[in-house]
């Protein structure tokens, strides 16, 4: 049981290993706080929709399961969207269309199809929760690197020395690709070291 949860954090990390959900990963991680909000919103959607999907998995005919999954996911995405708009308007405005776009995040549909439609509610919940946390962590790390170099801050607090020159490329799309590539590289190096021990 616990394995279902842990594997999403490292061994099958959705960003660094499965390389899924690249659109929000690359687009919103200009700042830590955006990465965190996107990650948490995605976690909420993935956990709730996976629980519903695994509950009704035996009632859904094989042929229409993908539309069913999509409708369920879209419901929770709408809920998350309205929640952010009501309580965190600034963040909602900054993330823009990427919150509604969670509905097409393939991490979610991937877990629904590959895990929740074949396993019980408890295991599906743990699996989805692990994936969500893994996704959130990856986005925060990516956001941290880009925010430190691109703006000299972490979560809005200045961490660099006085007179630090912002690396403007890091808050642009090119910086997202460079950072993601380097982080996946570092991830693989660490992973190899850990495995060989």
């Amino acid at each position: 049981m616990i394995k279902d949860f842990v594997k999403g954090l490292w061994r099958e990390n959705p960003v660094f290993v499965q390389v899924l959900g690249m659109c929000p990963t690359l687009a919103v991680t200009t700042k830590c706080v955006f990465g965190l909000s996107m990650g948490l919103a995605t976690t909420f959607v993935i956990v709730s929709s996976v629980v519903v999907i695994s509950t009704i998995r035996k009632l859904v005919p094989e042929q229409v399961r993908i539309p069913m999954f999509t409708v369920i996911i879209a419901t929770f995405v709408t809920a998350a969207d309205y929640f952010l708009k009501a309580n965190f308007f600034e963040i909602s405005k900054a993330l823009g269309p990427y919150i509604p776009l969670i509905v097409v995040n393939c991490v979610i549909l991937g877990r629904a199809e590959a895990f929740a439609s074949k396993h019980g509610v408890a295991r599906s919940f743990l699996d989805a929760f692990g994936m969500g946390i893994g996704f959130t962590c990856a986005l925060v790390v990516l956001g941290a690197v880009r925010e430190v170099l691109g703006a000299g801050t972490v979560f809005g607090y200045p961490v660099m020395w006085e007179g630090f020159t912002n690396w403007i490329v890091m808050v642009m799309p090119a910086g997202a690709f460079i950072t993601l590539g380097l982080l996946v590289g570092v991830f693989n190096i660490v992973d190899k070291r850990v495995k060989s021990k």
Binding site: T165, W167, I168, V169, M170, M172, A174
Partner: peptide
């Protein structure tokens, strides 16, 4: 090109 995108002013 990287420096141009990173430090456009300089």
């Amino acid at each position: 090109a990287f420096l141009m995108a990173t430090f456009p002013v300089h």
